[in-house]
Design a protein around this nucleic acid. Structure first.
Lengths: 203, 203
DNA sequence: ACATTTGTTAACCACTTGGTTAAACCATAT
DNA sequence: ATATGGTTTAACCAAGTGGTTAACAAATGT
């Protein structure tokens, strides 16, 4: 079959592109390096993806569609706020350990090109509305201390994502090597959830 | 005097380079754009700074020496932990509003080039030791709930820095325009400190 | 068997990149 | 005045850059 060969190289290109784009960014990435890593001729990149920009967008959308479901677990799940925080924290950290370049890549490129966010908003972007309702209700019931849903959501994201985005800084400040850093992150699977819940639970 | 002219263009170059490097990063920045922005010939950049790499390092060190004192306020000040958190949160957010590109720039470039962190460590890098001692003592005295100094420090950094690094994401999730985003950040000057203190204070 | 479509390559191209050079400029010291 | 020194410029350069082309290879349909 023709398809096997066909889909194979297309997949190999995407895999190589992912690796190069995610570690060097759009500006730092070189088409030649992607071709080399995929083990094919540079012209093939254009044959399958037409331009650097389109290849990049394929990688970016791919990455974002991995991240989005993670965030939906906080925003649109039906469980209690406490459960959401516990589950998300633990799951997200496991998730990032498997995809270490992902959060940095997305944040960096969203900052570089504001237009991306508009394109993403079209096709079903995670929305805060449901979570907002839940938080407001819980506050009204006295289950958690008064806090705006936006600020709580920002805090959850910050505590979970930042340590990976700022990995080199954190390693430097805490005098950690890679092993020590990994331990710190492992601890955070429970630490972060406790930290948040301690802060918002009513006494 | 010859010096006035001399120091003037050198300063203009650095200013232009700061603006370009901080918004586009090392890879995205173009020497021609820096020259244009400084209103001078491209050759002058090399006359004063020899290479793109050295010009970039001048900008980077400059940026980092602005950020370092902010972090030292948490790590090496003599005030109580609660005061530190309150002051740092408020001060840092004000600081970043004045230098919006700074945290992203530093984090991005540290991730791109691991060697930078080694160079920084030579010349007096903020150190966590004193803060660690303080936290451990306060925990022992029962003033705050048990938490490792490293995790607390990471949390403080995360809650303060992340919202600026991930500005586009946060604006998208919270459906904010620039004005609304600014309000959110303004609120955080007190929100974040309360959030942290609520979490660690003993009841 | 043969024509046609699809996949792949090497060579090439126009253009941009960071960096250099040699000559001009200009304030000052003599 | 003029020689001297640092400052500034226009023109240039080699090495990449993303992208194209035309010819070749391999699979597929008839």
């Amino acid at each position: 079959m023709k398809k096997t060969k066909d889909e194979n190289t297309e997949e190999q290109i995407l895999e190589a592109a992912k690796s190069v784009f995610q570690s060097k960014g759009m500006d730092g990435a070189r088409m030649q390096e992607i071709a080399d890593k995929a083990g094919i001729n540079k012209a093939m990149l254009h044959y399958y993806y037409r331009s650097k920009q389109l290849l990049f967008e394929a990688v970016f959308n791919n990455a974002f569609s991995l991240l989005a479901p993670q965030l939906n677990a906080i925003l649109n799940d039906d469980s209690s706020i406490e459960d959401k925080i516990k589950n998300f924290t633990s799951n997200y950290i496991s998730f990032i350990v498997k995809h270490p370049y992902l959060p940095n890549f997305i944040i960096q490129e969203l900052n570089r090109n504001q237009d991306f966010i508009l394109k993403l908003k079209d096709k079903g972007f995670p929305n805060i509305e449901k979570f907002k309702k839940q938080v407001n209700e819980d506050v009204a019931k006295g289950l958690i201390k008064p806090i705006s849903a936006e600020q709580l959501f920002i805090n959850i994201m910050a505590l979970n994502i930042f340590p990976f985005v700022a990995k080199p800084l954190i390693m430097a400040f805490t005098n950690s090597d890679d092993k020590n850093y990994k331990l710190l992150m492992e601890d955070r699977k429970t630490e972060v959830a406790n930290f948040i819940i301690n802060s918002i639970k009513t006494t």
